[in-house]
């Protein structure tokens, strides 16, 4: 069985919810990533923010990224997957919620992330194609 931790990439980094979006942008630039998990004061994940969130939920509304925080952009139920979950469950989670990045949690700690690139690298062509069809049917 292929598990979530077999296809994830390690070294995912959090930011805490009270950090500014300017800081979040700098971390995204530095790590060359498009999404960051956000943690609360107790180290629990409260959401994930993307570069696009900063643009459409802050800048486009006239917000100031020096004042708005990562926590301001977190909404809804944060999606994640257990490190030992089957890869089928990973795909189901990403397809059904049309999300491109999934945090991987083990013993309540963030141990990695699964992105579309990880899926493409580790799965056979037919699964990648089905995944792409589901995820990108709403891609802009």
């Amino acid at each position: 069985m292929t598990r979530a931790k077999d296809i994830m990439h390690e070294g995912a980094q959090w930011i805490t919810r009270d950090e500014t979006l300017t800081r979040a942008a700098q971390v995204m630039q530095m790590l060359d990533v498009g999404a960051l998990p956000v943690s609360d004061d107790n180290g629990r994940m409260c959401g994930i923010i993307t570069d696009r969130d900063i643009v459409v939920k802050c800048l486009a509304r006239g917000g100031n990224p020096d004042r708005a925080t990562a926590g301001d952009l977190c909404e809804g139920t944060p999606r994640w997957i257990d490190a030992n979950a089957d890869v089928e469950d990973v795909l189901h989670e990403m397809e059904s919620h049309k999300i491109r990045r999934l945090p991987v949690i083990e013993n309540k700690r963030l141990v990695g992330m699964i992105s579309e690139a990880d899926v493409a690298r580790h799965l056979p062509d037919n699964q990648v194609a089905e995944f792409a069809g589901m995820i990108y049917s709403t891609a802009k």
Binding site: V128, A129, G133, Y136
Partner: peptide, 26 residues
């Protein structure tokens, strides 16, 4: 042309190759 147009119009093999190369970028 975006990834959604490609997903609608390409074969499975083409999509998989594209995904492997392009989505390695952030």
């Amino acid at each position: 042309i975006s990834e959604s147009e490609l997903a609608k119009n390409l074969t499975d093999e083409q999509i998989a190759e594209f995904a492997g190369r392009v989505f390695a970028a952030p």
